[in-house]
């Protein structure tokens, strides 16, 4: 099986393309799904796409170990964000009885 060279050897661009597709899918989840948990999952996808870019540039570009460091901090902040956002989602569910983001339209009873 003979493949063209740009296909046979994955390089920086291949990882960047995968990350761009992940970013688009995350954006699609954020703007088209109405469940607040699914919106959160879309945000996680977007953060992971950014992380993949950082690590890919740290391997192929001149961004040496700093890229790994930034990826680690992004993971840490994503963990904190997920915990707080799920607590907010639980509170919203307790107050409104639903997690549909279109139904949540009032600030205070």
């Amino acid at each position: 099986m003979v493949l063209p060279e740009w296909l046979a050897e994955p390089g920086l661009n291949h990882f960047l393309v995968v990350s761009a597709v992940l970013f688009s899918l995350g954006l699609l989840a954020v703007i088209s799904r109405r469940n607040i948990i699914l919106v959160l999952m879309g945000i996680e996808l977007i953060l992971n796409a950014a992380n993949l870019n950082f690590v890919a540039f740290s391997r192929y570009g001149s961004l040496s170990l700093d890229g790994h460091m930034i990826a680690l901090f992004v993971i840490i902040i994503a963990a904190a964000e997920a915990a707080v956002a799920l607590a907010i989602a639980l509170n919203i569910y307790n107050r409104f009885g639903s997690v549909d983001v279109e139904l949540i339209s009032e600030l205070k009873e």
Partner: peptide
């Protein structure tokens, strides 16, 4: 980042444990 994780943990516990019957 350590302080942020601690704050997020405390905040999440405080917020999530405040139970209320669904309206």
């Amino acid at each position: 980042a350590g302080v942020l994780l601690l704050l997020a943990m405390i905040g999440a516990v405080l917020m999530a444990s405040r139970t209320r019957t669904p309206k």
